[in-house]
Design a protein around this nucleic acid. Sequence first.
DNA 1: GTCTATATTCGGATAGAC
DNA 2: GTCTATCCGAATATAGAC
Lengths: 194, 194
Amino acid sequence: MQLLKAKKFDTRFEVLSATLKLFSEKGFFRTSMQDISAEASVSIGSIYHHFKNKEVIAKALYDMLLDSMTAQTQLCLDTEESFRASCKRLIRYFFEVAEQQPHALKFLLYARHQEFLPNHPAICQAKPFELLIVAAKEAIASGELRDVDPVIVVSSTFGGPMRLMLMKVDGVMDVPIEACFDASWECIWRGISR
Amino acid sequence: MQLLKAKKFDTRFEVLSATLKLFSEKGFFRTSMQDISAEASVSIGSIYHHFKNKEVIAKALYDMLLDSMTAQTQLCLDTEESFRASCKRLIRYFFEVAEQQPHALKFLLYARHQEFLPNHPAICQAKPFELLIVAAKEAIASGELRDVDPVIVVSSTFGGPMRLMLMKVDGVMDVPIEACFDASWECIWRGISR
DNA sequence: GTCTATATTCGGATAGAC
DNA sequence: GTCTATCCGAATATAGAC
């Protein structure tokens, strides 16, 4: 599933797509409107017709990607029966995104937003994180997990995989990230399971 | 131990100290030389006398903090006898820094460097990480840890605590981070130990 | 809706006195 | 070594034609 959705082949999409690539490569501040214009083959005037300013492009992009992540998280939690199964599936999904849409994941993970979207909540206050906290709480109540603070459960569960994903999107990992899944998951599950 | 060392009460130190605060609050690009000048109570001309440009300040800061981290990592690995004891001590140390010198940790963790120090190695290629990989390898050989890829061991060990540290420096954690230590460590150790 | 040309601001960096 | 005053380029954003 593509995180960045092409409703139709329109200017708006071209701009967002080009911007995502540039931001993840060079960052928000090193990317000029000129750059975006060139990469998207859309004039600066047109860009400003669709987006009030550069920050608005960033915000549109961020919201879109985060919404996809939230939807996917919700889906995994709703579809699977156990916390274990939900997390396994979700991490598998994240790994897939890291492999196939590294730009999107890098943009999202690198929490640069803090810098270019001032007074925006930190990523750890975002929706997916909160959904997982709730799910962890339930899994503790049901006895699936040991009785540990849910925040620590979620950090322990996703902290390791996130390090691996960062390595992947930074180009430091030469093997496919899927190769890390089993070993990584075993560490996680031994850590949090009852 | 202070990560930012005051050799003497000199201009250079004043600038670095002010810059650390501003960068961690507003980021590299939103901090102007004007801002630094005001915060440090040092004229712009003087700043440029000591540092060629803004990037050089950032790099000096980054190197200084990373060197401290490397030294501390080395110390823990040299002093303690087991991988387990080394990591416990190191994470305790990190937590302490998160609590007492959040600016320093935030600057270091937020890997914004990628953006303002182009073609600089990602944090996961930095010295402390490499030291830990080697140590993990040895601990596997000695039978202290299960036979898991050392990269995964290190990610699993520090991934969780790093999430917690980020929450702390982002002001999202209201309790002292030390309160998380025992539970977090138990998850880690169950995950990686033999 | 898209484009080109242009205005205006901002901030990094320098010159040169003390 | 420190300071003030100033330069100048870059990039955001706009105006207005098509």
